[in-house]
């Protein structure tokens, strides 16, 4: 192979289709975490929530044969994890970072344990039914768009619309206004008679719902089984994407796609040039590295919520 052939083998529509494919779970988790963070809550346990979602998705699909029930189960289990986090971090005013970390560790252990208990062997679940893919006739003859968007998971296109919906919700609805206010200055919200605690709960539960679904996408769409630790850092990548994207729908979306692209590129490189000089680990570390640079000041002000990570205490003097 000469250089141009190699480049063509790497940079083509397949890479873009693959980018969308691997981005979906990051977008789901990223959008969820963005909602949570906008309300002033930092939930770094999103990786764990995804893991539980992935397990619940596989279990739901396995026991009912219906992957859609699996998807719903994943969302609900995600919310349960979010509820536990919220109770500790919001109601009990615990340190949000430590709580998130504890939730993550709990979920890693719990998902592995449940897998072992339910199927009596560790490692992998049996194969389960997966969500259908979506083939749109009218796209067949459309160049570029056709190969990219056809035969993706049937939830791919709705997921790609989430950032648009959130942009409207955040900046065009009262609910979005209260959500942002809760994250900027909860006391300002309290003095006009809205309860910041309630809003933070709702936001965290919505975020966890999306993270759970993001996990299930991995087990009942991208693959067809649950395996231990299968989220493999995507939750943390989503966290990075939220920071990198300035906690704004458009920015976070682009960051998710960018990190998804790096993942897809890395996978493609492995197949095209098996003993590539670029080690896989370097690609995997790239999102975190970029986030560090972003935090170190390349992005002037992240524009994130002012009160993030701080517990809201009502009668404090």
């Amino acid at each position: 192979m000469n250089w141009s052939e190699t480049l063509q083998a790497i940079f083509n529509v397949t890479l873009l289709a693959s980018t969308i494919r691997v981005s979906i779970s990051i977008i789901l988790a990223g959008m969820g975490e963005m909602i949570t963070e906008r309300s002033g809550v930092l939930n770094i346990g999103v990786e764990g929530t995804m893991l539980m979602g992935a397990l619940a998705g596989a279990l739901g699909s396995y026991f009912t044969g219906n992957p859609w029930i699996g998807l719903l189960a994943a969302g609900i289990v995600g919310m349960l994890v979010g509820l536990l986090f919220s109770f500790i971090a919001i109601s009990l005013h615990s340190d949000q970072s430590i709580t998130g970390l504890a939730i993550y560790l709990l979920c890693v252990g719990l998902s592995g344990y449940l897998l072992q208990v339910i199927f009596e062997h560790g490692g992998n679940s049996p194969m389960v039914n997966t969500l259908p893919t979506l083939h749109m006739k009218f796209l067949e003859n459309v160049p570029v768009l056709g190969p990219i968007f056809n035969d993706q998971s049937s939830i791919a296109i709705p997921v790609l619309l989430i950032p648009v919906i959130l942009q409207i919700v955040f900046y065009r609805t009262p609910w979005g206004s209260w959500l942002r206010a809760a994250g900027e200055n909860p006391k300002a919200l309290a003095v006009v008679g809205k309860n910041p605690v309630k809003i933070r709960y709702i936001a965290t539960l919505c975020g966890s719902f999306l993270a759970g679904i993001g996990g299930a996408y991995l087990s009942i769409s991208q693959t067809s089984l649950f395996s231990e630790n299968m989220v493999a850092g995507r939750g943390f990548i989503a966290l990075s994407a939220v920071i990198f994207g300035g906690v704004k729908p458009g920015g976070v979306f682009l960051a998710c796609i960018f990190f998804g692209f790096m993942d897809a590129l890395q996978k493609t490189l492995q197949t095209v040039i098996p003993d590539t000089i670029m080690p896989r680990e370097l690609f995997m570390a790239l999102p975190y590295l970029l986030t560090l640079f972003a935090l170190a000041g390349f992005i002037k002000k992240s524009g994130g919520p002012a009160d993030i990570g701080n517990p809201y205490l009502k009668e404090s003097r």
């Binding site: 942002r180 900027e184 200055n185 006391k187 300002a188």
Partner: peptide
């Protein structure tokens, strides 16, 4: 309030 209850980002 003495310390304003406003949201600077709005």
């Amino acid at each position: 309030h003495q310390h304003f209850k406003l949201i600077p980002a709005m």
